[in-house]
Every structure is written in C-alpha cells, then in structure tokens.
C-alpha cells in the first residue's frame, strides 16, 4: 500500500516561503509526476514527502498514518537521486543490499533479493564492481535496484534521468514505466521535462512558484488546462497566445492556439491570419514553422514534413475554431 496525502503543507527556509500551501491526494499505485519550471519547489516538495526536510506546518500522511515528524528511515519510502548517490566505497552488490542490511534481513534472503534485482535490471555482470567503474546509465540502474529491493511503499524520483544522454533517457523512461506496471507501487517522479511528464504519468501535478496550478491526467491537462500557465507549460512546442482585439472577438482577455491546431495554406487569402515564415525547423516527420503573423506577432505552427518552406515564404493560417483556448484577465481558463 502506498497512498500519500498532503494537508496544507507549508515550507519556508528562514524568511523565504517556498511552498505556501499545498494539499494533494496521491492514490496507491499511481504514477504521479511533479512538473514545473526550475526553482518552483518540485524537489523541496519531494524531500518533504521523503522526510529529508521538515514541514514548517501542515501534515503528511502515508496510508492514512501521520508521518509529519517521522525521520526518513521510518517512512518506508525509497528515493532515486539525480546524482545517483551510490555508496562509492561499496560494490554494486553491497549498494543494493544496503537497505536490506539496515532492515536486518537474514543474509540468505538478502542474496536472493539482490540476485533478483540484478537480473531484473541487467546488472548481473557488474555486481562486484565499484560504482566508479560504471557508466551513468548503469549507475542509475544500480540506484533503481537499491530502491526496489526493499519493496517500499512508494518510490520517489528526483530528475533521475537528467544526467543521461538523450537516447539513454528515452530507454530508461520506458524501463521505469515498465517497472511501474510490473510493481504497481506508487511512484512520484520529479522532472522539468514535460515530455517525460506526459508520457509517464497517470496524473501530473503542475507546480509554479510553490503552488499547484493543476492536478490531473496528461490528456486532461492538455485538453482542459486550468489556466494560461498550464496551457503554456504542457504541450510541445508551446501554445501560442494572442491578446487584444483578436481575443475580444472570442469574448476573452487572451486566447491560445496550439501549434498543431492550425490549418495552413500557401494560397493567398485562404486563411484567417496572414504571415511570413521566419524559421522553418524540419524534423522529417514534422516541420515547425515560426511565422511572423501581421499584427499578432510570432507564432509556432506545426505541419507535416511533406512540404518545404523557406525564410520569407507567405503563409495563411486558420486556427481550428473548436480548439481555441480562452482565458480571462487573471489567466484562468474560460469555459464555453
């Protein structure tokens, strides 16, 4: 079991309030991602749950039991750090065995569990090496192995993949998702990469300046962002925003259109907005056009990779009428 409840959690470092007031309910077995810009308090929130930081006020509950004052060792959670944080003076085997040793498990049982974890994570041939003799990806696997052997109530990941190269990152992303499907244990995963958030999460917590902007499934956030911040943060490339008279036509303070929600034409007049291609980023499968739209500014448009565009090409854009997001003056989403 591993449900996690935060009740009015507040955290200040000295005079500086980092997390004003957060309440969250994370259900047993969920994969929850904390996402948000750098410095918004993702790691701090995770560390509060871990017990590595003390809450200034508020309560944290695990399976309904209040653990607010409990030290990390008593919470039964496992954490995977960005820096891997392996014990450099121990072999891979001893690293993975360490939490079991702390739990005073009999040696025979420890050996069995270490072997099993090593097999699951393909670490068999490294078991007697020191961490310093491993590559980044292997180290991360050891860190995950060390986390899973103990069968914790929940896993906490703090940007575990950000030190890996792009290809390995995609691989490990899949492995962690598979691991979750296999173990069905609650996982909380911190990242500032919204692709990781969208692809891995059951539900995403979008944080901004220590506040929860929205908590929902990836598609919910994509389709019904609660406000301009979430709308701009979720989705890649970013949503385009338009203020002023063009927004007023839609009875809104500002409107947003995602790059993938445009119809594009090169025929003069065959579109609502006229513009000039500034930069065309050709990825093969897609092309991202950065279009200078007359009177509205720079917009990103996504189109298939079939047609080639050049700097200075004239294009005509029509936003998909059903997929225009409307926001009020405070940035909150307006419902239709």
């Amino acid at each position: 079991m591993g449900s996690i409840t935060l009740e009015h959690v507040n955290k200040s470092f000295g005079e500086v309030e980092i997390i004003p007031d957060i309440s969250l309910e994370i259900e047993d077995g969920e994969f929850v991602v904390f996402v948000g810009p750098s410095g918004c308090g993702k790691s701090t929130l995770l560390r509060l749950i871990a017990g590595l930081e003390d809450t200034t006020s508020g309560h944290i509950k695990l399976d309904g039991e209040d653990v607010t004052g409990a030290p990390p060792a008593r919470r039964g959670l496992a954490m995977v750090f960005q820096s891997y944080a392996l014990y450099p003076h121990m072999s891979v085997r001893d690293n993975i065995a360490f939490p079991l040793k702390m739990a005073k498990m009999p040696q025979a049982e420890i050996d069995k569990k270490v072997e099993y974890a090593a097999r699951t994570l393909n670490l068999g041939s490294y078991l007697d090496r020191r961490p310093r003799a491993l590559s980044g990806g292997q180290r991360q696997r050891v860190a995950i192995g060390r986390a899973i052997v103990r069968e914790p109530k929940a896993f906490l990941f703090d940007e575990p993949l950000s030190n890996l190269d792009a290809a390995l990152r995609v691989n490990m992303r899949l492995e962690i998702t598979e691991l979750h499907q296999q173990l069905k244990t609650t996982m909380i995963y911190v990242t500032h990469d919204q692709v990781e958030a969208m692809t891995m999460a059951d539900r995403i917590v979008v944080l901004n300046a220590g506040n929860v902007e929205q908590f929902g499934s990836p598609l919910e956030l994509y389709k019904r962002p609660a406000n301009r911040f979430v709308a701009g943060f979720i989705g890649s490339p970013k949503m385009n925003f338009v203020d002023g008279p063009e927004a007023e036509k839609h009875n809104a303070h500002s409107i947003g259109v995602r790059p993938e929600h445009f119809t594009l034409s090169t025929t003069a007049g065959a579109g609502q907005w006229a513009g000039t291609v500034n930069v065309a980023e050709q990825l093969g499968s897609d092309t991202f056009l950065h279009v200078e739209v007359e009177g509205l500014g720079l917009m990103t448009v996504r189109t298939d990779g079939e047609q080639t565009f050049r700097h200075g090409d004239k294009v005509y854009l029509t936003p998909d009428a059903n997929r225009i997001y409307r926001f009020d003056a405070a940035g909150l989403a307006l419902q239709d």
Binding site: A50, G51, L52, P71, P72, A73, L77, A78, M79, F81, S83, A85, L86, Y87, P88, H89, F98, P99, M102, A103, R146, R150, L156
Partner: peptide, 27 residues
C-alpha cells in the same frame, strides 16, 4: 562528501548511528 549520499542512506533506512558508521566514516 556529497550530502546526497548521506540522504540516500537515510532513505535506505539507516538511523544516525548506521549512517555515520557505515557510510560517513568509510568515505
């Protein structure tokens, strides 16, 4: 010594004594 490693020990269930004896001192 990176504090991460000591925090990892705490997460792994090490109380203060074990953290010092098994992780800090050997390092």
């Amino acid at each position: 010594i990176p504090v991460d490693i000591l925090e990892a020990a705490r997460m792994d269930g090490a109380e203060l004594w074990n953290e010092i004896v098994h992780v800090l001192v050997p390092m």
